[in-house]
Structure formats: C-alpha cells, structure tokens
Simulated assay, not measured.
Amino acid sequence: MLLTLAGAVAAAPAWERQVGMKSMADSARIIGDMFSGRRAYSQTNFRAAAESIRAHAGTRLVDDFGSGSQADSKADAEMISTSAVEFSRLARDLEIYASALSSAADRNPSELGAETRMGGALFGSPFGRKPDAARDAASMPAEHTYHLMLQTCTSCHAKFRSP
C-alpha cells in the first residue's frame, strides 16, 4: 500500500510532530537498550515501545507532515512535497519494521531468544539486493529489523530535514 501526500491535509503543528519524533526516539532507545543488555528485557515494554513507533509511522507520519511549510519546523516541506512517494515509502517501512518488532515481542515472552539476534550473521552485501520492508521484515531476526528501522529513520532525516 502506497501512502501519498496528494490531497493531504495541513501539516500538524511542528511542536506536535516534535513530540511524536521524541516519542519514537525514546521508544527506539528502549528497544536498543534491551538488545544491548543495558535494560532488562520486558515483553510488555518492548511491545509498547514498538507499538509507539508503529502508531506514529505510516499514514499518521505522512498526514502529520501534510502540506505546507512551517517556520518553526526542521522539516523540508518542499523536499517532502517533491519526493512524496519516497517519503511515504519510508513512513510505511517504519511502520512495517515497528510492527515486526511488536510481533517479535509476542513470540518472546521472557527473553530475547537466539532467533531474535543477528548472531554475527551477515545480512546482505553492498552488491546484494536491498531489503524490502514488506517482503523481508517478518523473516529476519528482530535485531536486524531494529537496525533497518533505525536506518529508515536516518535516511528520512538525511533527506527531509532542513540543514
């Protein structure tokens, strides 16, 4: 499903989007801390963090950035508008990765099992095919999904934030 900005409503206020972005960053940090062992694993907290990201991603993210620029925003409204398909794809990928992490929590009630870890395995190469969130997220270890989710955030910020 492709999300588009065509006919989008006015963008959410910049402060509101910033609150959502901070919530996603905090949630990603919680998940990362559980993978790294800096925080004890909790199925409830892991799922809640993934669901918080999922709730701010996809259509909601596209709608939040709507049409029009705002003086107090770091978003590049013109770039978002001219690259709407890419912005929508990144928003949808973020939602897919977060959903896959939520499902991983459902499958791991007491610990992040070995199947959730990358375990030193290499996933892809510079010459291999690029991961496709819709096709690959459910079949890869959750830790790899987490890293691809972070990469999605970084890609979006690199292209769609004003310098």
Rank of each mutant, 00 (worst) to 15 (best):
T44A: 09
L61F: 14
L90R: 05
A75G: 00
F65L: 11
Q70L: 00
Q70S: 01
A40W: 01
G58T: 11
A100W: 01
K74A: 10
M79Y: 02
I80Q: 00
I80P: 03
T59W: 08
S52F: 02
Y97G: 08
G66Y: 01
E86F: 02
A75F: 02
H56D: 11
A98W: 04
F46L: 07
S42D: 09
V62T: 02
A100N: 03
L101D: 15
Q43K: 14
L61W: 10
E86N: 03
A40F: 03
A91C: 11
S73F: 02
I80F: 01
I80A: 02
A49S: 13
A71M: 06
L94E: 04
A71K: 02
S42Y: 03
F87P: 12
L90F: 05
A84E: 12
A91R: 03
Y97K: 06
D63P: 04
E51F: 10
D72M: 04
D63T: 13
A71Y: 01
F46D: 06
G66D: 03
A57S: 15
D93T: 04
A100C: 06
S42H: 05
D76R: 00
S81T: 12
T44Y: 08
S52L: 05
H56N: 15
S52Y: 00
A57T: 13
S83N: 14
E86Q: 08
V62P: 03
A55I: 06
A75H: 03
D64P: 06
A84K: 06
R89L: 01
R60G: 11
L90V: 09
H56F: 08
S99W: 07
A49Y: 07
E51S: 13
I96S: 02
I53L: 11
S42Q: 05
G58L: 07
S42N: 05
M79I: 08
S52H: 04
K74H: 08
A55R: 13
S52E: 12
A98I: 00
N45G: 07
A98T: 00
A84S: 10
A48S: 11
N45Q: 04
A75N: 00
A40D: 08
V85W: 10
R89H: 06
D64A: 13
R89M: 04
S81D: 11
L61R: 13
S67I: 10
L101G: 14
Q70H: 01
I53N: 04
T44K: 10
R92S: 15
I53G: 07
A77W: 03
S83A: 13
Q43W: 09
I96G: 00
L101M: 14
